[in-house]
Structures are given as C-alpha cells and as structure tokens.
Lab assay of single mutants.
Amino acid sequence: NNDALSPAIRRLLAEHNLDASAIKGTGVGGRLTREDVEKWLAKA
C-alpha cells in the first residue's frame, strides 16, 4: 500500500524505478524501511 510509504522511501523507490509491491517490508505492520530497499537493491 503506497499510503504507508514514507516520503524518503517513495523517493528511494522512484530513484531506482522500483515497485514497492516487489519488496517485502519488515517494518511495523509490514512497512518498507530503507534497509529493506537497500537489501533488495544489493540482491538485484
């Protein structure tokens, strides 16, 4: 759900042209964290 994304995470996803639904969030309530996105980028 994009409503649950912080502005910083939205920007990070946009910079790398990523789809938030492709990344499993580990934050509160399954929210994406910066670490989630960075780990996903490291694997890609």
Results as ranks from 00 to 15, higher is better:
Pro7Leu: 14
Val37Gln: 00
Asp19Ile: 09
Thr26Ile: 04
Leu13Glu: 00
Leu32Met: 06
Leu18Arg: 02
Leu12Thr: 03
Ile9Ala: 04
Gly25Leu: 03
Ala8Trp: 11
Ala8Arg: 13
Thr33Tyr: 00
Gly25Val: 03
Gly27Lys: 01
Trp40Phe: 15
Arg10Tyr: 06
Ala44His: 15
Pro7Ser: 09
Ile9Asp: 02
Asn1Leu: 12
Ser21Ile: 06
Arg34Phe: 15
Thr33Arg: 06
Arg31Trp: 07
Pro7Tyr: 05
Gly29Ile: 03
Ala14Pro: 00
Lys43Ala: 13
Gly25Glu: 01
Leu12Asn: 01
Leu32Gln: 01
Leu13Phe: 06
Ala4Ile: 14
Arg10Val: 12
Arg34Gln: 13
Leu12Pro: 00
Thr26Gly: 03
Asp3Val: 09
Ile23Leu: 13
Asn17Trp: 06
Arg31Val: 13
Gly29Val: 03
Ser6Ile: 05
Val28Thr: 11
Val37Ala: 05
His16Tyr: 10
Glu35Gln: 12
Gly27Pro: 01
Arg34Tyr: 15
Gly25Phe: 02
His16Gln: 02
Glu15Pro: 01
Asn2Trp: 03
Asn2Gln: 14
Asp36His: 00
Ala44Pro: 06
Asp36Trp: 02
Glu38Tyr: 15
Leu12Glu: 03
Leu18Ser: 04
Asp36Phe: 01
Ala4Gln: 14
Ser21Lys: 11
Asn17Pro: 02
Ala22Cys: 09
Leu18Asp: 01
Ile9Ser: 01
Asp19His: 08
Glu35Phe: 10
Ile9Pro: 00
Gly27Phe: 04
Gly29Met: 09
Ala42Thr: 10
Arg34Asp: 10
Gly25His: 04
Glu15Gly: 08
Leu41Pro: 00
Ala22Arg: 10
Leu12Met: 08
Gly30Ala: 05
His16Val: 02
Lys24Arg: 12
Val28Tyr: 09
Val37Ser: 00
Leu18Thr: 06
Ser6Leu: 07
Ser21Gln: 09
Val37His: 00
Leu18Glu: 03
Arg34Ile: 15
Ala44Tyr: 15
Lys39Pro: 03
Glu38Asp: 08
Ala22Leu: 15
Gly27Asn: 02
Ile9Glu: 02
Gly29Asp: 11
Arg31Gly: 06
Lys24Trp: 07
Asn17Lys: 10
Asn1Gln: 13
Gly30Tyr: 01
Gly25Gln: 02
Ala20Leu: 10
Thr33His: 01
Gly29Ala: 09
Asp3Ile: 09
Pro7Met: 13
Gly30Met: 03
Ser21His: 08
Asp19Arg: 07
Ala14Gln: 11
Val28Asp: 10
Ala14Gly: 06
Ile23Thr: 01
Gly27Glu: 02
Asn17Asp: 08
Asn2His: 14
Ala42Met: 13
Ala20Phe: 09
Ile9Gly: 00
Thr26Ala: 04
Asp36Pro: 00
Leu13Ser: 00
Ala42Phe: 11
Glu35Tyr: 11
Lys24Gly: 06
His16Trp: 07
Gly25Asn: 02
Val28Phe: 12
Gly27Ala: 04
Asn1Thr: 12
Asp3Pro: 12
